[in-house]
Design a protein around this nucleic acid. Structure first.
Lengths: 333, 333
DNA sequence: AACGAAGCGCAAAACGTTTCGCTCTGTTAT
DNA sequence: ATAACAGAGCGAAACGTTTTGCGCTTCGTT
């Protein structure tokens, strides 16, 4: 069908080795370079990556495993990862784990079978077992957003606890004392942000009544139900901290249903700055993650392993977060 | 590193051909089958897809090109496409065209170079030029959502015009006469839905004043600005039809900013049933697309081409739409 | 008992690259 | 002038599969 390196050989009279050398950036005599380039243009030659991969055992493809591909957080991440990867000539093979640990492990195996050069994951599991096949095959892995329990894998993330701590301080500085939190204990990010909240409260000498703590899951439902519960309390909090995008949305919806309004009746502090945050009224004051950097740094880290084979030790990159002021926090007295 | 078919050969004493035949589902003597299976288990053998691909020129990988990977519509589609594909042993290589026709064409070329067996696209372009390289390489393509101008490529989509027509009829049946539309003329889907709207109005003998027609783009901004303009009119419409998800969101936000409310002051008819629709209050009455079927049918169609080489003629699958009642339409008697 | 067909196995040739070890040419340092 | 050496090219062997054509058995039929 399409031209092969052998056709170039026939056309130029050079050997396969020389042409291959040219293709891979080696030095060839200027006259030969000209010949080869002419032949390539003429025959529309393109390297067959499959054949190349077979001998180099490198496919210029990385696998990306996410817990849910339709989540905006992951979609945004995938966009940046893809962009960075393509710039370097790599493609990305996507796998959706559907929040299922078993599927996640199968995905890893699948990608290894496809001979990806590396894997980037936003994992479901926090326990490294699912990465065992990758380690055995010596394929580098970089995690985003969620490190392993034992930190035994490279990871790019934010300092969730610190980000939450600082944000909650703002709430306190605005005079709020009765602050509730809607989060979860299961997911790593949720747990950290929740504990950042507790730390801020503790630091300010404020106590958090049991009923102000809603750990119903880092999901739309979690946020929705949590908020409903809070609004039914006889002594309502003056402010609520919601620890991710979905929870924030769910909570906003619950508020809308209740007839109360923000920030008049209750103040909101949210997390993540994805599309929705702009359209909701009032604009939620929130912690924002550096989405593009998360993706780019992960790619950078992974390619260091792939191309330079850096095996030194596992590195963890912690990026700074931003804070976006909205109109959802009312200053008390 | 890992075991090859040659190791199986040594272990079993059979020839490569026999083992290969077994691997590909051919008939082998029961005793040999047992030997091979034992060896495979023992050596943890797995087919090297690269080598297989080199000789069969099939990679069991399909390329997916979308105009924007972070869009919820595409993310949802990718989830279903991926699921269907994996069931059949195929993987998916994702490319984001970033709404850029030139990048879209480069993406196609890239995928061909990666030797994908087929391509599924939610295209930016409506002109088939970008598919030329795929046609030349004889790689099947299936489009989703947006057919080509000349219908020269397989496509899975809904009947946009019909869906809009029916939906707008509901508005009219509720007593609305002064109906505005926020849409676009550039994108195929927008254009069709807009014309479905016009058809419904025409059918009912209603005229649409110029200023009720906002064609500012199928985007969040388009919806937002369109709605703002409508709300500034001295004679406001009693209802507005918004022709996709982003437009709907933008319009809802504009309404929120205005102090008016839905459905008391104005009625809404939206399009697409993605997460957001649930959290917005009031719940928008809307047209819903069969997201999972769109993805699954596209995969089915593509695999027909890949595995059976069906070349008959281009087929177009048109799926039915649903209608989700919300509380955003006020009945004017 | 002979014969053709069917079933199964084998060796070898592909697929399109990269890489290894070698030769050749020409240049620099002694 | 010569030894040493760097630069560039070459042929051949690899990478791990599938596929093709052919030969051997075995079985059922006449």
């Amino acid at each position: 069908m399409s031209a092969t390196i052998r056709d170039i050989k026939n056309q130029t009279g050079l050997s396969l080795a020389t042409i291959s050398k040219y293709l891979n950036g080696g030095n060839v005599l200027p006259e030969n370079r000209v010949k080869i380039e002419a032949a390539i243009r003429e025959l529309h030659y393109e390297v067959n990556e499959l054949a190349r991969g077979l001998v180099t055992s490198r496919t210029k493809t990385v696998g990306v495993v996410v817990y849910a591909v339709e989540s905006l957080f992951n979609g945004t991440l995938i966009k940046y990862i893809g962009k960075a990867l393509r710039k370097l000539g790599y493609g990305l093979l996507i796998c959706d784990s559907d929040n299922d640990e078993e599927l996640e492990e199968r995905n890893i195996r699948y990608l290894l079978n496809k001979k990806v050069d590396g894997i980037i994951a936003v994992p479901v599991s926090s326990d490294g077992a699912f990465l065992k096949p990758a380690r055995e095959a010596d394929v580098p892995v970089v995690l985003i957003d969620r490190p392993l329990k034992d930190s035994s894998c490279d990871c790019v993330r934010i300092d969730n606890r610190q980000a939450a701590l600082r944000a909650v301080r703002v709430l306190i500085a605005n005079g709020h004392r009765d602050i509730a939190v809607i989060s979860s204990e299961r997911e790593y990010t949720a747990y950290e942000r929740y504990h950042g909240f507790l730390e801020a409260m503790d630091e300010a000498g404020l106590s958090v009544p049991e009923e102000y703590i809603c750990l119903g899951g880092h999901s739309f439902e979690g946020g929705n139900l949590g908020m409903k519960r809070l609004l039914e309390l006889s002594r309502k909090p003056s402010a609520v901290f919601m620890t991710n995008y979905e929870v924030t949305l769910g909570a906003v919806m619950a508020l809308n249903d209740s007839g109360l309004s923000c920030p008049e009746d209750i103040s909101f502090l949210g997390f993540d700055d994805l599309i929705m945050s702009h359209i909701i009224k009032p604009r939620i004051t929130r912690v924002v993650q550096p989405m593009s950097s998360l993706g780019e740094k992960a790619v950078e880290l992974l390619l260091n392993h792939i191309e330079n084979g850096e095996e030194l030790m596992t590195t963890e990159i912690v990026l700074g977060t931003g804070f976006m002021e909205g109109d959802s926090i009312r200053a008390l007295e």
